[in-house]
Amino acid sequence: MQAHQHATTRQFDPQAQAYLGSAVHAAGPDLAAARDLLAANLPGSARALDVGCGAGHLAFTLAPLLAGITALDPAPSMLDTVASAAAERGLANIATCAGHAGALPFADGSFDLVASRYSAHHWLDLAAGVADMRRVTAPGGYVLIIDVEAPQDALADTHLQCWELLRDSSHLRDRSDAEWRALLADAGIELLAHQRWPLRLEFDSWVKRMRTPAEKVAMLRQLQQEAPQEVAAALQLEADGSFTAQTGLWWGRVL
């Protein structure tokens, strides 16, 4: 497990500025939905944790509605980027903390909301990570997951996972809605809402953001070009390699 965690940190640590400026990560209807859910369900005195915060876009979105939010990530440069960007935005209620899902350095029930966005597909033991999120959530508090949602169709799912792995060696697996529902239920989290939106990934910026080696980019393009028509249709594959996946949001309450 440590080898995978270290590899993931090495992969992302140099890319903090790229993720801060990434249009995919900096905006999206999922951020608006997360803000609306928080505003409708938690008071301004609430405290939150953002697990695998990356460059901090979820924390930046939620911070104005909270007493405080802790942005947690294993990559030091991501935390430095979050801290400096929060200061520039005047968000003094954002704290940073080094750590990873499955070994959260907080006492039971420390937060009213525990969230994660575009991080869970890197977690080696996802069930342990979700259980740990539930552990540090106060009774009656909320858990928010936002991630790439895997297709239900096995053929499209297999191709998407292969593309993701070639592009990013730290990728583990995107999960389907059915898988997320089971994970949350097993952790004792009641699912209250699920939403999804199209997620168009422009090929050139997608691979450059992760510094994908040229030989893997070539393999990725070959796989795309050889993809069956059903896959091309399901993922809306474009001539330049751009495609459209799905962003999923799961909002639950700790039982």
Rank of each mutant, 00 (worst) to 15 (best):
Q2S: 15
Q2N: 15
A3G: 07
H4S: 15
H6G: 13
T8C: 05
T9C: 15
F12G: 00
F12S: 11
Q15R: 10
Q15H: 14
A16G: 11
A18Q: 10
S22R: 03
H25L: 12
A26D: 10
P29E: 12
L37D: 01
L38T: 00
L38E: 00
A39F: 07
G44Y: 08
G44C: 11
G44M: 10
S45F: 10
A46T: 08
A46N: 06
C53A: 00
C53W: 01
G54E: 08
A55E: 04
G56R: 06
G56W: 00
G56Y: 09
L58E: 14
L58Y: 11
T61R: 13
T61N: 14
L62C: 06
L65M: 12
A67E: 14
I69H: 05
L72E: 00
M78H: 04
D80P: 02
T81Q: 15
A83P: 01
S84F: 04
A85Y: 06
A85C: 09
A86K: 01
R89L: 14
G90S: 04
A95W: 08
T96G: 05
T96R: 08
T96H: 13
C97E: 15
C97Y: 14
A98G: 10
A98Y: 08
A101N: 11
L104T: 06
F106N: 04
D108W: 05
A115M: 01
R117H: 14
Y118F: 11
S119I: 01
G129R: 08
G129T: 04
V130L: 15
D132R: 01
D132P: 05
T137S: 15
T137K: 03
P139R: 09
G140D: 13
G141Q: 01
G141R: 04
Y142D: 00
Y142H: 09
Y142P: 01
V143Q: 07
L144I: 08
L144G: 13
I145E: 03
I145T: 08
I145F: 13
I146C: 02
A150I: 05
D153V: 01
L155E: 14
L155H: 03
D157W: 02
H159R: 04
H159C: 06
Q161A: 14
Q161E: 13
C162Q: 08
C162H: 05
E164F: 01
E164A: 03
E164M: 00
E164R: 10
L165M: 02
R167T: 10
S169V: 08
H171Q: 11
L172E: 13
R175N: 15
S176N: 05
L183W: 12
L184W: 05
L184Q: 00
L184R: 08
D186R: 04
G188R: 09
E190P: 05
L191S: 15
L192P: 00
H194L: 07
Q195N: 15
Q195V: 05
R196Q: 13
R196M: 08
P198A: 14
L199M: 13
L199N: 09
E202M: 05
E202A: 11
F203P: 01
D204T: 07
D204S: 09
D204C: 06
V207S: 02
K208F: 10
R209C: 10
A214Q: 09
L220E: 10
R221H: 01
R221C: 12
R221Y: 08
Q222F: 10
Q224V: 09
A227S: 15
P228E: 13
P228W: 02
A234P: 02
L235S: 08
L237Q: 07
E238Y: 04
A239M: 06
A245F: 07
T247L: 02
T247K: 02
G252S: 12
L255K: 07
L255W: 06
